[in-house]
């Protein structure tokens, strides 16, 4: 279970970071969401992975720690609000700049535009 859990967190975080570094707002928002999923699972794991344990001290040899679940719940609520805000902001960016590039407009690459011209010219 530990390996599977770690792999899931790793994949989510890696994909999140990759998407975050994209130049368009939609992948960035998706990246932030995936990153927060990864982080939430990570927080959950900080209370150790155990099944069928009681959350009360002294009732059993091993206990399952309830506190990380409270932390995760808080983090989920905050993450949800932040995602909503960033979605609205991205839409605003799209409307204001008529482009969904994270810098408002894509940087002008003389080499690229020349190439494009040549391609479209042919």
């Amino acid at each position: 279970m530990e390996l599977l859990f770690a792999l899931v967190i790793g994949t989510l975080t890696a994909s999140g970071v990759y998407l975050l570094l994209r130049a368009r707002t939609f992948p960035v928002v998706m990246g932030l969401t995936l990153l927060s999923y990864g982080v939430n699972l990570f927080l959950f794991a900080s209370g150790r992975l155990s099944t069928a344990q009681q959350p009360i001290l002294g009732t059993a040899e091993n206990y399952s720690d309830p506190l990380p679940q409270a932390l995760v719940l808080t983090a989920i609520v905050i993450g949800f609000a932040m995602t909503a805000f960033v979605v609205v902001l991205s839409l605003r960016n799209l409307a204001d700049n008529e482009d969904d590039h994270v810098d408002g407009c894509p940087p002008a690459h003389p080499a690229n535009s020349k190439q494009e011209q040549e391609e479209t010219g042919k």
């Binding site: 939430n40 209370g47 990380p68 994270v102």
Partner: peptide, 28 residues
């Protein structure tokens, strides 16, 4: 204000994620 705002929000959301990871590590 839209573009600087977007940068600010995205950066700080990543900052929050890192904060949570740090908190999780210390708590564990």
């Amino acid at each position: 204000r839209t573009v600087p705002g977007l940068h600010y929000v995205a950066l700080n959301l990543v900052g929050s994620a890192i904060f949570l990871i740090a908190v999780g590590m210390i708590y564990s």
